[in-house]
Design a protein around this nucleic acid. Structure first.
Lengths: 227, 227
DNA sequence: GCGGGCCTGATTGTATGCAAGTTTGCCCAC
DNA sequence: GTGGGCAAACTTGCATACAATCAGGCCCGC
């Protein structure tokens, strides 16, 4: 039998729904997530809700205390900062692994295609169009592709973990300046270049720099916004 | 109300039991973990077993497919290698954070005490006693203390994740030579020294070196053993 | 007035039954 | 003998009932 796309259970779709809501900020930090109200809201029984809550807690989005249930976790600026640095370290390691093993031709083409998409967006200025969605897709595709090519479930899981902290994953591009976009994509080019050249050291360095700079930009702008 | 040590539910203790069994190798890689047999074995109903299995799957110890249940994950030598490198990156980041913020006097004393314990074990040769248990405790205390002082739930979680892969966590000291023990503890000293000196760069470098070398030692010896 | 203990309502933890999906193997056509 | 399809057995997913634990308020003694 061939592996199918994996049917989705109710628990899983509930977990997705709740994850999206939390990251979107629908629930206040520290708010209780109770089984019965959520079950009624979603029109299911407590069982799948319980399982979803457990998943989210393992992801680090909720806090759990035995017999006392789940609460939405709070994230400090320091949490966000560390999450960016952790993500930088993990994706940096991924880039180094890729440089060490050399890419296949197909993989090179895939990355080149993503880079071209970015080039095109920058050239005609359309990266600023409708909520940056095209840029956001390009950026996500780039990072996801590299992580996938690194082909390590642990690395993917860890990188995902670092992104369960709000802001760290979304790419808060609304805070980016024109130069920020250009620099960011320049990094993408340098990362791919180093990987293709088989230079693990430089691939890791550029990726770390790329993610860390994104973190600094976002944090700085966010703190301004909070004033 | 004061925070209590957190009561343990059945789900949690079952998860612990199963985690220990898996890491110990009681179940073959790829083996199915079915709810009913496990529930009967542990003399509970399927519910807490289900929740435990879900936790272990989130940890990456089991693989899950909807409607098809859970299987024990397989780990390749490559997985182990990457896990060590990921752990090196994370604990390295932790060490750097500590160096950047400077330790309190209490924290300095705590680390100094652990270093002394290691010194003493090396001096009288007792690190080789009964299954290296004293050495293992000292080593664990060292790494756990640093992670705790770094005070980031994300970092702790990620480091823990990297350790859910067999061998990566246990400290396979039975493969260590005398020199390996001495070098390992020398690293501990250098890490603490760099942290106390506020030198984040060096603290990170030594920690990464320390974990990476441990990984190389273990992998090399293990592959010999597998022949 | 204040602190401690108890009782009650609310909430989570576990057990169990039924529904839905998956796997196995048998049978039959070719 | 081989492959497809069907059906039965098995396994997991979900709902619900009941048990255990927790939080808050009340009463009582001091």
């Amino acid at each position: 039998m061939v592996d199918r796309p994996a049917a989705q259970t109710r628990s899983q779709s509930i977990a997705e729904t709740l994850r999206a809501r939390i990251l979107r900020g629908d629930y206040a930090a520290g708010e209780r997530m109770q089984e019965v109200p959520l079950a009624e809201d979603l029109a299911v029984s407590r069982t799948p809700v319980r399982e979803a809550l457990r998943s989210l807690a393992e992801d680090g989005l909720l806090e759990y205390a035995a017999n006392r249930g789940y609460r939405v976790r709070e994230f400090t600026a320091r949490d966000i900062q560390i999450a960016f640095r952790a993500r930088a370290a993990m994706e940096g390691l991924g880039a180094r692994l890729l440089a060490e093993r050399r890419l296949t031709e197909d993989e090179k083409h895939e990355l080149a295609a993503i880079l071209e998409r970015g080039d095109a967006l920058l050239a005609d200025g359309s990266y600023r169009a409708d909520d940056f969605s095209a840029w956001r897709r390009m950026n996500r595709d780039f990072h996801v592709a590299l992580l996938r090519m690194a082909d390590s479930s642990l690395l993917e899981k860890i990188a995902r973990d670092a992104q369960t902290i709000p802001i760290v994953n979304q790419g808060a591009f609304h805070w980016y300046s024109d130069a920020d976009f250009r620099h960011s994509h320049y990094h993408h080019h340098m990362i791919v270049h180093a990987i293709n050249a088989g230079d693990g050291e430089r691939a890791e360095w550029w990726m770390k720099e790329h993610v860390n700079l994104a973190g600094k930009t976002v944090l700085a702008r966010q703190q301004q916004a909070d004033l």
